[in-house]
Design a binder for these strands. Structure first.
Lengths: 114, 114
DNA sequence: GGCTTGTGTAAGTCATAACTTACCGTAAGT
DNA sequence: ACTTACGGTAAGTTATGACTTACACAAGCC
């Protein structure tokens, strides 16, 4: 029960911020505590904490308290949820693309039928 | 030369806005002109135009002028770029996850080696 | 037990971007 | 050619959210 992502849209919104993407990039290589994480960034440690909260709420990160430090890691399930969302979008995009190509092949409606 | 997406990060930022996600959702079923698009939304037509520009710049949408109206459609290549980005992230997330699981199996460093 | 280290939270400031109204250009219809 | 419909752009306002400093709390070390 490592709690799954709430919804992919929250995750997308979380990844929109450059600093948060930088955090995610830093976590690609492995889990890190907050201090280490903030050391490579240009913003203050509290700012990092706030971003970590947003990413965690979006289901993209998981915390493991280890003594006095809190180690953050990428949550594979959160990334997977995003992937599923985009896969479905990709599927529909292709279908719509094909449908429009078919419509252009048989120009039944130069005008919208209203 | 339907011009490809600039980078996945711009696309993510574009999808962060709820109104823009609503536009994308509406385009899943097929291409639409601006008027039709704005009709289903709560914001004004100019606002929709601005959002369409952002989505187009991100490589997620394509325009087809048809007479006086401009028909917008999902750009499969833009969605594909996003998918590739997330696939790579997913890959690293799994690797990091496995690495940490291995570290926990052989606890060489209860402390960070600094 | 007090001190230090590591981190999350609160309050407030400031920058960004989403939205509105007004306007302009362009393509079709009569 | 004039009118109408459609959509992009400009200018200005407002709301959102990212950042800072200051503070509070918990866990290890002496």
């Amino acid at each position: 029960m490592t709690y799954t992502s709430p919804n992919p849209e929250t995750a997308i919104a979380a990844l929109a911020d450059p600093t948060r993407r930088a955090i995610v990039e830093r976590l690609r290589h492995g889990a890190l505590p907050v201090g280490e994480l903030a050391h490579g960034l240009t913003v203050s440690r509290p700012a990092v904490s706030q971003h970590l909260k947003v990413l965690s709420d979006a289901g993209l990160l998981e915390v493991t308290p280890r003594g006095t430090r809190r180690v953050y890691a990428l949550a594979p399930e959160g990334v997977a949820a995003l992937r599923r969302y985009l896969d479905a979008l990709w599927d529909d995009a292709l279908a719509a693309f094909a449908a429009e190509a078919g419509q252009r092949a048989s120009p039944l409606d130069t005008e919208t039928p209203e």
